[in-house]
Simulated scan of single mutants.
Amino acid sequence: MGPSASPAGHFVVLYFAAAASYTGKTSEHLASPMAAGELFGRLEQLYPGIRARVLESCAVTVNLQYINLDGDDAEGARVLLKEGDEVAIIPPVSSG
Rank of each mutant, 00 (worst) to 15 (best):
G76V: 04
F16G: 10
C58N: 03
A8L: 03
A74F: 06
A17K: 11
T26F: 13
P3A: 10
N63W: 08
Q45L: 15
L69W: 15
L46C: 02
N68I: 03
A59G: 08
L80T: 07
V87S: 03
V62F: 00
H29Y: 14
F40H: 10
E44A: 00
L43H: 10
S95I: 11
A31H: 11
L30P: 03
H29S: 12
A31M: 08
M1D: 10
F16A: 09
A36L: 07
N63D: 15
M1A: 12
G9D: 07
E56D: 12
L55M: 02
V79H: 07
N68L: 01
F40T: 00
A35T: 09
Y22P: 01
E75D: 13
I50K: 06
V60Y: 10
A18V: 02
D72N: 09
A17H: 09
P92D: 14
L55Q: 01
L30I: 06
I67Q: 01
V93F: 15
A59C: 09
S21R: 13
A17I: 06
L80P: 03
S57E: 04
P48H: 14
G76F: 11
L14E: 12
A20F: 03
N63Q: 08
L39P: 11
M1N: 13
I50G: 11
A59W: 01
E75Y: 02
D72S: 15
D73G: 04
P92G: 11
A5Y: 08
